[in-house]
């Protein structure tokens, strides 16, 4: 069995291990100016006051807000199309059948 065919994860894993070892070695040498227990160890929040611990968590509804706002014209009709009414699901199914039939038959006639 050849190891290198169309895609070899082993190469990537080896590269990852090498990078990891180098990083850990570099990190273990440490930073000379760092002193434990001073404000160097504090959270930096762009100079603002750091919020309470529970306020720091970004909840999921805040994520990608700009993307949804920009894509509003795509999302509004798509979300509305998913009505949740069982009749609509059946209409889509029968409509798909009819469409597929028309396309297949017409394409064969042409």
């Amino acid at each position: 069995m050849p190891v290198l065919t169309f895609w070899a994860p082993i190469v990537l894993i080896i590269a990852f291990v090498i990078v990891l070892v180098v990083t850990l070695l570099y990190r273990s040498r440490g930073q000379a100016k760092f002193k434990e227990g001073t404000e160097q160890g504090e959270v930096f929040y762009s100079g603002e006051n750091v919020p309470e611990e529970l306020q720091r968590h970004v909840r999921s509804h805040n994520m990608y807000w700009g993307f949804f706002e920009a894509m509003k014209r795509y999302y509004d009709p798509t979300v509305r199309a998913h009505t949740g009414i069982v009749n609509d699901y059946l209409i889509w199914l029968l409509g798909l059948t009819a469409l597929a039939g028309v396309v297949i038959i017409v394409a064969d006639l042409l």
């Binding site: 199914l93 798909l96 059948t97 597929a100 039939g101 297949i104 038959i105 064969d108």
Partner: peptide, 17 residues
Amino acid sequence: TVLDQVALALILAAFLM
């Protein structure tokens, strides 16, 4: 035949669904 084409459309729609 045309009937096979109709059957193909029915099968495609049913299984894709």
